[in-house]
């Protein structure tokens, strides 16, 4: 057998760029979805109100598509076809347009997602400090917990607390392997996650930025 026979075939399209859905067949027997009819599409009043408020903020209401998708995802748990339909109805856009937008951005889930999001940064600065090991540990610790979704994420902009994670939007770090289990326990108990490692309580690193009566986390006291 030659070298070429032994090698796995090169996968041409399976790269990570933003082209999800290229291999999903379209049902050609169905007519394309048009702008939903408000009379036939029930939208929860609260969601409608919030989307309309977002639309009013911009000179062109289409600008509200990302805020509206955020709102719909919060309401439905993910950007389900139903959620997209409702946004399309309020904004008077086609579901296809909103799906194209939602599929571009990492924070929108077009498939059902667990209730809790744990984004582990696996980019350069964090990985130099062991983020890949932490990510694996986090996946292992969350295994069997259906409501916790662990994702490796691109740089979250908190390399000063690397390795770090964003747990339901709360930035925590620097993390060690033991913290993975603690994050799971805190989430299951409904507690604030790793309170002693939250970025919001952390002092700036620059000595001239400090104040004497700082009561939060002092990075020098912690690591120095």
């Amino acid at each position: 057998m030659s070298y070429f026979d032994k090698r796995p075939p090169v996968k041409r399209y399976e790269h990570g760029s933003r082209v999800p859905g290229w291999d999903e067949a379209v049902d050609l027997t169905k007519p394309p979805a048009t702008v939903p009819d408000p009379a036939l599409t029930p939208v929860p009043a609260e969601l409608r109100e919030k989307i309309e408020a977002a639309m009013a903020l911009y000179p062109d209401s289409k600008s509200a598509s990302i805020p509206a998708l955020h709102l719909a995802q919060q309401h439905h748990g993910w950007c389900s076809p139903e959620a997209i339909e409702q946004v399309a109805c309020v904004m008077q856009l086609t579901p296809a347009y909103l799906t194209s937008v939602a599929s571009f951005y990492d924070m929108f889930a077009l498939t059902p997602k667990p209730k809790h999001d744990v984004y582990v940064c696996t980019n350069i600065s964090c990985s130099l400090l062991g983020a890949d090991e932490f990510y694996e540990q986090m996946c292992a610790s969350a295994h069997g917990h259906e409501d916790i979704g662990v994702r490796g994420f691109e740089c979250l902009g908190a390399c000063d607390i690397g390795p770090m994670a964003s747990v339901n939007g709360e930035y925590v770090g620097p993390l060690n392997l033991f913290d993975a289990q603690l994050i799971v326990e805190d989430l299951e108990a409904g507690r604030p996650v790793l309170e002693h490692k939250q970025l919001r309580n952390r002092a700036v690193a620059d000595p001239q930025g400090r104040v004497a009566d700082w009561t939060g986390i002092d990075p020098v006291g912690q690591e120095g």
């Binding site: 350069i124 600065s125 130099l128 400090l129 390399c159 000063d160 690397g162 930025g209 990075p219 020098v220």
Partner: peptide, 14 residues
């Protein structure tokens, strides 16, 4: 400046 990676006191400095 944001300093990160293999340093002992990572963080923001002016």
């Amino acid at each position: 400046v944001s300093v990160s990676g293999d340093v002992q006191r990572p963080g923001n400095y002016e």
